[in-house]
Nucleic acid binder design. Structure first.
Lengths: 339, 339
DNA sequence: TATTGCAATAAAAACGTTTACATTGTAAAT
DNA sequence: ATTTACAATGTAAACGTTTTTATTGCAATA
């Protein structure tokens, strides 16, 4: 009976009534307004405790139109990708430290879903948004930036508008991987790309091409395959490559999931790594060491990217006029046994 | 100039003014109330399109106190665990199909964080909640259930209250794994458990013990280790086991992350699987086949669990009085090469 | 013709906040 | 003794909805 009521939300009004003051005063106490008698403050605080009062965030947001609603939106392309999970963890830690809640939307590379979620986020009056746009000209996110909503882009930037963005050195990262393969003596190095329209895919391809050139290896376009950044795509494209009349002797995989897909195909074919085929993945996972064989990979500081993005977003929410910033994080080649 | 305005949210009021009707009428049009003149309806709908009006979900929730706010909360213990990521995907798909948005909270097995997030979810007036409580007597979630908020528990139930719950056959799953090891001739089979207070950990231990008994293997309690369900814990406890005077010849790992941790340790020690030590994991991953060696594992239908949970939650939101239900999903032993 | 009934719409209250503005009471200054 | 100033508090409007209740006009009935 009493325990039932424990969780019935009490409002400012009830607190005010019980404390014998007006709701304005209670509000002032809650928001630490200086203009309130210390004695009154104490009394009100006691009642707040007694009633287990928690402010209603919905009412707060409605009133304050995205000021101090303490809610940020996150729009990620694929929650199955461990990279984004790590990014999410970084975001979440910072959000928690700053008492922000997260509303997470996973649009699975589906533009219709992306649009729906952006509408929802907007109509939820989020204070800000961390997003990985589908491409550089993503109109949906671009419009949102133009509307003045604080936004930080991760992993993928926006071309038509000034916006904070946290990126990684995709080109350098890819270069170091492919260069490593070339220096190890591999001649027919394939590249399995994610979605071709993504800036990151293009940059990685550039790094790949440059490394080949620098090592005097001619570029064979049959060895470049474009997929959709997902596991299945890695499985299929790797299969295509291995069935080629003259198959590659090494593979550079464009992301996490592609790498896992490619590995699956290689194992199904019974090939041994790296003697029959070498592989390097873009994006490391903490369990890469437990793969067969331990995977050589380009490591992105995913968790750190998430943290930085969230920190920057909070800065921007608090000061919308501050100059925009673009941050490029370094990658690192982690050499294990797959090449 | 004009593009700036494209995304300025327009309200019911503006639509009403432009259409020359009252806001009540506009609201009726939006909610498909039958009591509105077809002619008026058409006119209003046109204005809605022109103004790109989107209803404000915050106002809606404030007014309707968790009716049709179309927002559900998800409280998960560890987003790094691929199992929960899969569950989340299932939830998300169903939510999307039903036009619900998700507010996702990851409490990282931290009870303080759990409490904070529950408070937030409540004060966000979510329509319902999908949660994996920290233990059977989780007061925080229990209270919330008592308060009448629609809740579905996944992976872990609640003892003191009647609540919908989606579980897996932990005991049978564990039994099948350990029985498989025993039948293969292994004698010293260790169990690395997750958090001991979790019902799932206990059930899996029971399955482990029963399988040993059934195969005439005495239970050696030094071979049972309790950790915290995380990767590091798998690394450390596996190390302890391998350093034992008479180490195990097989390991049954209590979850995903523990398995990966254990694999890491085994590889670091340079032991070969399964000749020197066998391992079976609880919980399969789609890339388990790419591990070294391809992992034998007990597969939980994680995605399906998420789907069922979300479906059940929506049913309950729409009919809070319906009888509660408890659903137990089957597991499946996927035999590969690690034992 | 005066009443009734009904369809279509408008008006207004409510949800729980924040805040600009108005009202008190009291002490200092004239 | 009256004004002034200021601190403390209260009042009320606003945020954008939904919904209950009230109003209108018009056709059908007595």
């Amino acid at each position: 009976m009493s325990s039932e009521n424990d969780y019935k939300m009490s409002s400012l009004n009830e607190v005010a009534k019980k404390a014998g003051v007006s709701i304005a005063t209670v509000s002032r106490v809650i928001n630490n307004s200086p203009k309130v008698n210390p004695e009154t403050r104490l009394k009100v605080q006691q009642v707040i405790k007694d009633l287990k009062y928690h402010p209603n965030r919905v009412a707060k947001r409605l009133r304050n139109k995205s000021a101090s609603g303490n809610l940020i939106g996150v729009l990620i392309p694929d929650i199955q990708n461990p990279f984004y999970v790590e990014v999410l963890r970084g975001i979440e830690d910072v959000a928690y430290e700053n008492k922000y809640a997260l509303i997470m939307c996973n649009f699975s590379q589906d533009e219709k879903k992306e649009q729906l979620y952006l509408d929802i986020l907007q109509s939820e009056s989020v204070d800000g948004l961390i997003a990985a746009p589908t491409n550089e000209h993503d109109q949906k996110v671009t419009n949102l930036v133009k509307s003045g909503l604080p936004i930080v882009c991760v992993d993928r930037g926006l071309a038509d508008v000034d916006v904070d963005v946290i990126l990684v050195e995709n080109q350098n990262g890819a270069y170091s991987a492919v260069d490593h393969l070339a220096k190890a003596g591999y001649k027919r190095i394939a590249y399995i790309s994610g979605l071709r329209q993504l800036p990151s895919s293009q940059e990685r391809e550039a790094g790949y091409s440059n490394a080949l050139k620098a090592n005097g290896i001619p570029i064979d376009r049959t060895l470049i395959r474009y997929g959709d950044s997902r596991h299945e795509s890695g499985v299929k494209l790797c299969e295509e490559l291995l069935n080629l009349p003259s198959p590659p002797d090494a593979i550079f995989a464009g992301n996490n999931l592609i790498t896992l897909g490619a590995l699956e195909t290689i194992h199904k074919k019974g090939l041994t790594i790296p003697s029959q085929i070498a592989i390097i993945g873009f994006d490391d996972m903490y369990w890469s060491i437990s793969l067969n064989p331990p995977l050589t990979a380009v490591k992105q500081p995913a968790y750190e990217i998430g943290r930085r993005a969230a920190e920057q977003l909070i800065l921007r929410i608090n000061d919308p006029a501050r100059p925009t910033m673009s941050m490029v994080m370094k990658t690192e080649l982690v050499v294990r046994s797959s090449c």
